[in-house]
């Protein structure tokens, strides 16, 4: 069933602040096998001009996806979450995420399309720091596969 087009343009309230910790960044960098010192050594990060250790570019997805999931699971939208796969992902950075940031995400439904029975949902997540400054915008395309494909 086609999704309700009136959801396009709808924004959701900002999420509760997520505090970025040095050890969480270290854990994430280790999980992707990336030994770049800017992720773990504050002095190395400062030498590159950063205030504290920075997070790998895709780290912020853990935060934006949690916010996007609220949109996807909005009962009014009526999307079947169990059929959702990740289609595209894009980030536009104002600056890198760094330890000490307190980040909130505001999600907006940018587009809803139906193609070959699949529902395609574009969600934008604007990530702001504690001063209200934009840090990064995440563009996430989710595809809910047609139910008929599953049999």
């Amino acid at each position: 069933m086609a999704l309700d087009q009136s959801f396009v343009g709808r924004s959701y309230p900002p999420t509760a602040p997520y505090e970025v910790g040095r050890e969480k960044i270290r854990e994430f960098a280790e999980a992707i096998g990336d030994a770049h010192p800017a992720y773990t050594d504050p002095e190395a990060a400062k030498a590159l001009g950063h205030e504290d250790v920075v997070a790998p570019p895709t780290f912020v997805f853990s935060i934006t996806y949690r916010a996007a999931a609220e949109v996807v699971q909005d009962p009014e939208l009526g999307l079947d979450y169990s059929r959702v796969v990740h289609g595209d992902q894009r980030f536009a950075y104002v600056r890198p995420v760094r330890a000490g940031d307190r980040l909130t995400v505001t999600s907006t439904v940018e587009a809803i399309r139906s193609m070959a029975g699949n529902d395609i949902l574009d969600i934008r997540g604007d990530v702001h720091d504690e001063l209200g400054e934009l840090v990064v915008t995440a563009h996430t395309k989710l595809v809910a596969r047609a139910a008929a494909e599953e049999s």
């Binding site: 920075v54 595209d88 894009r90 980030f91 950075y93 563009h139």
Partner: peptide, 22 residues
């Protein structure tokens, strides 16, 4: 995350990424 390591290691600073999409 793995693919962009090719870029961040080449550039020298992971904070130099302005945009990244796949």
């Amino acid at each position: 995350a793995s693919a962009v390591r090719v870029v961040t290691d080449w550039v020298g600073d992971p904070g130099a990424v302005v945009e990244y999409g796949v």
